[in-house]
Design a binder for these strands. Structure first.
Lengths: 192, 192
DNA sequence: ATGTAGGTGTACCGATCGGTACACCTTGTC
DNA sequence: GACAAGGTGTACCGATCGGTACACCTACAT
């Protein structure tokens, strides 16, 4: 029970920040919505920024965990898992409480590259790309790091289009593009 | 001289909002940095939100104007212009004061889809995609709207990777992917 | 000469911001 | 039964938020 209250705070803060934004959410709002006294919050976290970093860490673990688990469920071979990422993304985009990428938003609101929040957000992209590279390597694809970066680019583009564009299924469009990328890579063509 | 002061305000506000963010920039900051009295600002715009919408409109015109002009300068045929978009993006990303996409940031900070700021930001994406579709049509490509959406997805992905990823040249990676897309389209293969 | 439009500076409004102080309540442990 | 740890509620801090009020200063039109 010792640190469960703290974890509960981080969990609820993550949801609230994701739904309402970081700067737009005041600490008083957090107190009411999370049902935790302000005194307790500041006993666990020195500043609001520290709390935001903690929520980003939780979100990073959750999102990467969910995504790669789902990829493994949807496909058996490493190659097919890379493609299945876009099916998983399509599921995510279809959820009623999808509100875009929390990390992109964090970067938007805290632009300074040296800011801890910005660092944590960009770290998520790097970690995700590294995991993709590992799978691409297991799939026997050439230049797995390049493949991973391109798939990351497609993923980020799909997220933005799902958030801002009004088009139908950006994840499935990205999937079609990804198929082309893998096809070329498997044909031995060196990525330009 | 009548409306030049107003235009000057919008121009400077655009720069400031782009550099520092919308919510993070207070009206008092705007007064100091833009060198315009608060009274004047509120004589031209009823609210801060109205001013933000005006800056987004200016930015939309400027960015689309610059991008398509640069595409026309870099290539002569419609087909090559589509590809040249990514060379133009590469130039943009290389500018020292590149700070990501102002419209993505606007959507991040104002998430409500019914909010005028959100609408204006998403409209930019739609307008850009429509212009791309027109060029794809002139290039004689099949399903120009699909092509345009995919190129838009690549463009947005490249912007995000340029902002958040630490990789080398996301615009040129997107360009390589775009070449593959056009190659497939020209081979008559129906986009999946 | 007089009115009007567009501009300025300053002082101010209530609300909210992130953060702190303090007194108190509960729980488990020794 | 004493004590520390972790929690609560409330009241408060100075700073800043978006926005307004008011008096004044030009420049130009009639």
């Amino acid at each position: 029970m010792a640190r469960s209250k703290r974890d509960e705070l981080i969990q609820k803060a993550t949801d609230i920040f994701y739904r309402r934004g970081f700067q737009a959410t005041g600490m008083d709002t957090l107190v009411v919505e999370a049902g935790i006294s302000k005194t307790s919050i500041y006993k666990h976290f020195k500043t609001k920024d520290d709390l935001i970093v903690a929520t980003l860490r939780l979100r990073d673990e959750f999102l990467r965990g969910w995504l790669f688990r789902r990829m493994a469920e949807l496909a058996s071979t490493p190659r097919d898992q890379l493609i299945a990422m876009f099916d998983a993304l399509d599921e995510w985009f279809s959820e009623p409480d999808f509100h875009g990428c929390m990390f992109a938003k964090a970067c938007s609101e805290f632009q300074d590259p040296d800011h801890p929040i910005n660092r944590e957000a960009t770290a998520h992209v790097a970690r995700l790309s590294a995991q993709l590279a590992e799978i691409a390597d297991r799939a026997g694809l050439p230049n797995p790091n390049d493949i991973a970066r391109r798939l990351s680019l497609l993923k980020e583009g799909a997220v933005v289009m799902a958030t801002m564009g009004h088009d139908s299924r950006p994840a499935l469009e990205a999937k079609a593009i990804a198929l082309g990328i893998l096809r070329e890579a498997e044909a031995g063509r060196t990525p330009v």
